[in-house]
Computed example of a mutant assay.
Amino acid sequence: MRLPLYQLDAFADRPFTGNPAAVVPLARWLPDATLQAIALENNLAETAFLVRRDGGADGGAAGGADGAVEYDLRWFTPAIEVDLCGHATLASAAAVQRWLAPGAATVRFHTRSGALTVTGDGRDGGLLTMDFPALPPKPLDAAAATAVAEALGQQPEAVLAADKALAVLADEASVLAARPDLRRLAALPHDGLIVSAPGRNHDFVSRFFAPHAGIDEDPVTGSAHCVLAPYWAGRLGKTALSARQVSARGGELALELKGARVAISGRVAPYLEGVIELPVTAA
């Protein structure tokens, strides 16, 4: 069995920056064990698998009533399947527009987190915008906040959580200098830890650590900004925000809080096009 494989750098305007994601289109779902094995073999933060569901066939134009192409979408880290992933959704939309359904201006993905719509033109590095849920964080109780501070190795100005924990630090230098205890982080009852602060050239900066999912530090994390956007919008008194994730690779995001949703925009740089060879028994 041969499966197409695309690798793209999300939240990046050129290769070797942003967050790399693998995108694997399927004609039908394969066993979960096979999907997880492919993700482990790819050894990227996320591998996205998608199956077209709007009655169209890949290689053709859009088929939905509003001109959208529609896919079921799932995301796997090397260790687990996750409920929401931003950078691999952005990469999937760019792959659809570039290779699978050229000319589609709207791509709609059906996921564990509901319908996620991506608009824009990502074929040649244009800006793509994802419609994601906003997840406002709430302050943690004293014991939970202490556990986060101990794992981080410093006392944050504030500790909050939605699905992910959020530690707010004083400044960008503190975020860059953070060296959390990954073993302790993995034991926390949260979907990873975001560390964030006001930015020097952006409204805010962040880093994200998810050792429980097999990702010590994620280069650029769209889903973390579902938590960060409502927090910083409230703190800064503005709904349009500029953000940078200050990992080693780094990535730029533009955000707009729209009530219970957040628009997350970024660019995608294609890197690799290939084929996966699987034994028939893997199907």
Rank of each mutant, 00 (worst) to 15 (best):
P102S: 06
A27F: 00
A27H: 10
V195G: 04
F11A: 02
P31A: 08
A48E: 04
S247F: 10
V118S: 10
D58H: 00
L253P: 03
A48W: 02
E41L: 13
L185N: 03
P180Y: 09
R74L: 05
V262Y: 03
D9V: 02
G125F: 00
D58N: 13
G125D: 02
D54R: 12
P137L: 10
A233C: 11
A186E: 09
L135D: 14
P4G: 10
R98W: 02
A187D: 04
A57Q: 14
E157C: 10
V168Q: 11
A243G: 00
W75T: 08
H225F: 10
P198G: 11
A161E: 01
D191N: 13
A39T: 01
T239P: 01
V246N: 02
P137I: 04
R235K: 15
G103H: 04
F204V: 03
E150Y: 00
K164R: 15
L185C: 08
D218N: 11
A12G: 08
L50N: 08
G234K: 07
E150I: 09
R267A: 15
V168R: 12
L236G: 08
K258E: 15
P230F: 06
A167P: 13
I38N: 02
G63S: 15
D181L: 09
G250Y: 12
A65F: 03
A283H: 15
G59M: 07
K238Q: 09
N43Q: 09
P78K: 00
K258A: 15
F208T: 07
P102G: 04
E46Q: 05
V23L: 13
A269Y: 00
A177P: 06
A187V: 02
P20K: 14
A37H: 05
G67C: 13
A61E: 14
H110Q: 11
K258Y: 00
R183K: 14
F76K: 01
V118A: 12
V175S: 04
P198A: 13
L176R: 15
L127S: 05
Q155I: 14
A145I: 01
A186C: 04
V268C: 10
A254H: 13
Y231R: 04
A144N: 07
L73D: 08
D216E: 15
A39P: 01
K138M: 10
P219W: 03
E172I: 06
D66E: 15
Q97N: 06
V205H: 09
T47D: 11
L182N: 07
D32R: 15
I215P: 11
N43K: 00
A62I: 04
H87Q: 07
S206I: 10
P78Y: 01
Q245H: 09
A12C: 09
P15C: 06
L84H: 07
G63V: 13
T221H: 09
G18C: 10
P4N: 12
E150K: 12
L100H: 02
P189T: 08
L44N: 02
L5V: 14
R179Q: 15
Q245E: 05
A173Q: 14
G250E: 13
A94G: 06
A165Q: 05
G222H: 03
R261T: 13
P31I: 11
P279Q: 13
L253N: 03
A240D: 14
G122P: 02
